[in-house]
């Protein structure tokens, strides 16, 4: 099946450009001789929108798409694991956060090896605590503070 691979990326970039263009709306443009803070962001947004749309249009006209290998399950598992670190790390400490995150990451694979995952989680959390908290003095706790 032919998919519009480049076009998807082009539209994504054009969208990012549009968001930045809207955000730059209330910045002073200045003029070319004396640029304001909004000049470069506005110009770059226009370039991003133009290039993104051009990529999309060219691919639609040529119809030359490639296959997209998109692993939704892996994306969700990794994203959730990172989000867990963001939410839990300060409150729940290094060990609990890391063990939970390692299990979430293990769900990305076809079968769950529970015992192996637990061992990896414990070893990794102790290692991370030794390096970052003991070694580098980061203000994180080992276990949740009750």
């Amino acid at each position: 099946m032919k998919t519009l691979r480049d076009a998807g990326g082009g539209l994504l970039i054009a969208t990012i450009g549009l968001l930045f263009l809207l955000g730059a709306g209330d910045m002073a443009l200045g003029d070319l001789r004396n640029m304001g803070p909004g000049m470069l962001p506005t110009a770059l947004s226009v370039v991003a929108i133009g290039a993104g749309l051009a990529i999309a249009v060219i691919e639609v006209l040529r119809g030359s798409g490639g296959a997209i290998g998109f692993d939704f399950r892996a994306l969700v598992c990794v994203a959730v694991a990172i989000a867990l670190y963001a939410v839990m790390l300060e409150a729940a400490g290094v060990v609990l956060t890391t063990i939970v995150a390692v299990f979430v990451l293990a769900l990305a694979r076809p079968q769950l090896r529970a015992a192996e995952t637990l061992v990896v989680g414990i070893a990794l959390s102790v290692f991370a605590w030794a390096v970052f908290v003991k070694g580098l003095g980061m203000p994180l706790s080992f276990l949740p503070d009750f």
Partner: peptide, 16 residues
């Protein structure tokens, strides 16, 4: 074995 290690190092490292 490497993937959980990378995620942990990235997340805790960037926190620091």
């Amino acid at each position: 074995f490497f993937f959980p290690v990378i995620v942990a190092l990235v997340c805790i490292g960037v926190f620091g």
